[in-house]
Design a protein around this nucleic acid. Structure first.
Lengths: 208, 208
DNA sequence: CGTCCTGCGTGACAAATATCACAGGATAGC
DNA sequence: GCTATCCTGTGATATTTGTCACGCAGGACG
């Protein structure tokens, strides 16, 4: 935990110690699921290293990408769970190998009243996630697939800090709730426009 | 304020008094805008009477309905604003004549640490709005217009406690970010299926 | 009464997206 | 090398939704 302190510069000293004492550090492999839709929430999760993606699933197995969690980010849902409502409605999956800090909900509820900086952390987290969800809604509601695809690529470039995304059209189609063929065609157009280059195992983003 | 106490049965005595002392009661007419997209947030708003709708707007003037606030509901966005981020990204408009309690943000931040029940109120509010947003996303992402229209009608019936919605197809089209003609056709089909009856100034919901 | 406005209904058409069918290329395992 | 598997590209076609053009009905108001 000591090595992750820099992620939480705003948390006060006592809280830093408590995080260390009460939290359990969990390493997860890429692809592993941290929180399953429908599962009960008993712990708050904070990402320490790696990248986690959150997505919504429906009954027919369709899924829909919501947003990423980066080191220092807390999982909004699990941050403010209270006793009355504890079922998760989203799925969290590790994109890369990741490290997560897990804290029992009983702790965090105390912290909320005890530490002003924890309150700010939670509030800030929720606010950002909420805004990000709104942005997502904007895109589904107002934009066409081509624009949404570009946004998807930009977002993933930013999240992974790389211009080369090792990702298949099939995966993209799933996360945008579209179909592989559509993504394939749009991607071809992006390539023609010189915005991306199609590599044999991935996509290089040139200018977006 | 005294007359609205029953809306907050869970808030502790001292907090009830503070709400009364520090809050300002505001009456708004149907159609009036309470919170404009892009506007700064300085106050927390809690609905005491009437019905408020929240919607998202984009640059081209398209809008998109998000959810309703009923008496007893707080505006999630304004509840957890902190100093760092104060611009609203949604618009709030009174659907019917309404009454709203307005409390300066400085107050509510104190309450958060002072009153456990306030903390629960905020957490519960945020949680519900978040879930509602997710539900909305589900509908745009996974469903066709006909299903979304039915959902829209059910939601509004529940919010207004009536089977007769006095609303034009044009309005519905706007809130679903569709077009009048599409809604017109779908509505006709709903009528043929016996699910609604088209009145001369509105829609009667029969079985949905 | 005319005329202006707003909302509705509808046919024809266009655009976006989904689906189906099929073929080829790469690769891992035997 | 053979085969199974996964990903891709692409044409043909269906479905859904949006857009355009038009006419009609009713209410407000001079």
């Amino acid at each position: 935990m000591e090595e992750y302190r820099h992620l939480f510069p705003d948390l006060e000293e006592g809280l830093q110690r408590e995080l260390q004492e009460k939290g359990r550090i969990l390493a997860v492999k890429a692809g592993q699921i941290l929180l399953q839709s429908g599962q009960n929430i008993r712990n708050t999760m904070i990402v320490l290293d790696g990248l986690i993606k959150l997505y919504r699933e429906n009954d027919e197995g369709n899924e829909f990408f919501m947003y990423h969690l980066h080191p220092g980010d807390g999982c909004a849902l699990s941050l403010i769970c209270d006793r009355s409502f504890k079922v998760s409605s989203v799925t969290a999956k590790a994109v890369t190998d990741s490290v997560v800090l897990v804290v029992p909900l009983e702790q965090t509820e105390n912290w909320m009243r005890q530490y002003r900086t924890w309150y700010h952390f939670v509030v800030g987290t929720y606010r950002r996630r909420y805004e990000e969800l709104l942005e997502t809604i904007d895109h589904i509601a107002f934009q066409n697939m081509d624009e949404r695809l570009e946004f998807y690529l930009r977002r993933h470039r930013a999240a992974l800090h790389t211009n080369v995304l090792e990702i298949t059209n099939t995966q993209i189609a799933q996360e945008l709730n579209s179909s592989r063929e559509v993504i394939s065609r749009l991607m071809k157009k992006l390539a023609e426009d010189g915005k991306v280059r199609l590599l044999k195992s991935g996509i290089e983003i040139l200018k977006l």
